Computed example of a mutant assay.
Amino acid sequence: MLTSHEFELLWLLASNAGQVLSREHVHQHMIGRQYDGLDRTVDVRVSRIRKKLGDNSDKPFRIKTVWGQG
């Protein structure tokens, strides 16, 4: 079962399927303040969603990280 924050993040990602969203954009949308470069909240939520969806973090199928972009 997803938490409300995880669901909100998953909804944001699904609504923008096929697009790369920057960590800054996701952080601003989810947390409501500018990303400071240190906060790992979004990373942890993505990790938890991947685990709950059974997505392999080494070779993700559903939620992909594009290094240097988002």
Rank of each mutant, 00 (worst) to 15 (best):
W67T: 12
V20W: 02
R48F: 12
N16G: 04
F7R: 10
E8V: 05
M30G: 05
V44T: 12
R40I: 11
R45L: 06
D58N: 09
M1A: 13
L38W: 15
H27E: 06
D39V: 08
N56Y: 07
G32C: 03
I31R: 05
M30R: 00
H27P: 07
G70A: 11
R50Q: 10
V66E: 07
T65I: 15
M30F: 03
H29A: 13
H5E: 15
T41H: 07
H5W: 13
K52F: 10
H25W: 11
I49P: 00
T65F: 13
L13T: 01
K51N: 15
D36T: 11
R48H: 09
L38R: 14
D58W: 04
H5C: 12
D58P: 05
G18A: 04
L38A: 14
E24R: 08
L2S: 05
R45Q: 06
V42D: 01
V42H: 02
V46I: 12
L9K: 00
F61N: 08
S47T: 09
L9E: 01
F7D: 12
H25C: 13
R45T: 07
R50V: 08
P60R: 02
E24F: 10
S47Y: 05
I63W: 00
E24I: 11
I31Y: 04
S15G: 15
L21S: 02
W11D: 13
K59T: 13
S22L: 03
V42E: 01
V20K: 02
P60A: 04
L12K: 02
M1P: 13
Q28Y: 04
V66W: 09
K64F: 09
R23N: 14
S47C: 11
W67D: 12
D58T: 09
G32L: 03
G68Y: 14
L21R: 00
V20L: 05
G68C: 12
R33W: 10
L13W: 00
V66Q: 08
S22C: 04
G18Q: 00
F61A: 11
R45W: 04
T41S: 09
H29S: 15
G37F: 03
E6K: 04
R33L: 12
S57D: 15
G18S: 02
G18W: 00
I49G: 01
T65A: 14
T41N: 08
I63S: 00
V66M: 08
D36I: 11
D55T: 02
R33K: 10
S22Y: 02
K51H: 14
I63F: 02
N56K: 07
G18L: 02
Q69H: 08
K51Y: 13
V20H: 02
R33M: 11
E24A: 14
R40M: 11
K64T: 08
N16C: 06
R40Q: 10
T3S: 06
R23I: 13
G18R: 00
R33C: 15
V44Q: 08
Q19K: 10
L53I: 01
H27A: 10
V44Y: 06
V44A: 10
R48I: 12
D36Y: 05
S4Q: 11
H5I: 11
